[in-house]
Amino acid sequence: MIRKAPQPRAFGYARVSTTDQELTIQQAALEGAGCLKIFSEKKSGTRRDGRTELEVLLECVREGDVVVVTRIDRLARSVKDLQDIVLELRERGVALRATEQPIDTTTAAGKAFLDMLGVFAEFETNLRRERQLEGIAKAKAAGVYTGRKPSLDVDRVKTLFAAGKKPTAIARELKMARSSVYRVLGKDATEAA
C-alpha cells in the first residue's frame, strides 16, 4: 500500500494599515486558497514590532506548512523585514505563497520575484513618505499647515505671573508642568524665585 504524502497545511495572513480599512477581501481570498486558519490584523507593515498576529502565525507554523498572503506587501513593507520573515520561514521549512502574485518560495523564479517585489514595496513606502513631507512643506509655506495647536495658554501664564502668582501656583492652577511655566516666563521667573 502506497501512502500519499500529507498535504501541507496552509495558514493565511491578512493585514491592513489602519483601523478604518477592511480585511474582508483578503480574508475571502485566503479562504479560497484553502487556508486552515487566517491571522488578521490592522497594523502598519513598515515595522514588524507590535504585529502580534504575525508573531502568533510564525510561532504556529512548522516544517512543510505554507504561509499564504494575497500580496507580499501585506507581509512587510521593508526589504529587511521581508527578508527576515522569509529567512525565518525558510529555516523552519515553511513555504510562502501569494494569491495575487507569482510568488512561491519553493521555486527559484518565485524566490527571485519575491525579492523584486520586496524592493518595490519599500520603494513605494519611501515615495509616500517623501510626498507627505513635500505636502507638509508646501502647506507650511502657504501658511495652511501650522502644526499642532499649542497646549498651553502663554498669555494666561504671563497674566497670572504679573498678578503676583508664583510659577508653582500657576502650574497647579493651569494643570501644567512647572517647567512649562518657567519656559514661558524665561528669566523673569528665575529672577522672581
Rank of each mutant, 00 (worst) to 15 (best):
E59R: 02
R74D: 09
D73G: 07
R92E: 11
V56H: 10
R48M: 14
L58D: 05
S40T: 08
V94P: 04
D81C: 15
L58G: 02
D49T: 07
L87D: 15
A76F: 08
V67D: 10
V61Y: 01
T52N: 04
S44G: 10
E63M: 05
K37V: 04
I72Q: 04
S17E: 04
K43P: 00
E53T: 04
L36P: 01
D65L: 14
L30C: 03
G34A: 14
R77M: 11
E22Q: 11
Q26W: 02
R74W: 06
Q26F: 02
C60Y: 00
L23E: 08
C35W: 00
Q83W: 03
T70C: 13
E88I: 03
V61L: 07
R47L: 13
R47G: 14
V67R: 07
L58F: 01
R15A: 14
R62L: 11
A29Y: 00
L58E: 06
T52Q: 02
G45R: 00
C35L: 06
A29S: 12
S17G: 11
K42N: 00
D20W: 07
T70N: 09
R71M: 14
R92L: 14
Q26K: 07
V67H: 09
T70G: 05
G93W: 13
S78R: 12
I25S: 15
E91T: 11
D84I: 09
K43M: 12
T52R: 02
R62Q: 15
D73N: 03
T52S: 04
L87H: 09
R48N: 12
T46I: 13
Q83F: 10
L23F: 06
L57H: 02
T52W: 00
R47K: 15
R15D: 07
T70W: 05
C35A: 11
L36A: 10
V67L: 14
T46N: 10
E55V: 10
E91Y: 01
I25P: 08
E63H: 05
E59W: 00
D49Y: 01
D81G: 13
G34I: 11
E91I: 08
D84L: 12
E59H: 05
Q83T: 12
T19P: 07
V79I: 13
Q83E: 10
S78M: 11
Q83Y: 03
L87W: 02
R90K: 11
L87E: 14
L87T: 15
V16N: 06
T46A: 15
D49N: 04
R51M: 11
G32L: 00
L57A: 05
R48D: 12
T70S: 12
V69A: 08
L23T: 12
K42S: 02
E53N: 06
R77K: 05
L82H: 02
G34K: 01
T19R: 05
D65G: 15
T46M: 08
A28I: 12
L54P: 05
K42Q: 15
Q83G: 08
L58N: 01
V61C: 14
R74F: 03
G32Y: 02
I25F: 05
L36M: 09
V56F: 04
I38N: 01
L58P: 02
Q21M: 10
V66I: 15
E88Q: 11
T18N: 09
V16L: 10
G64S: 03
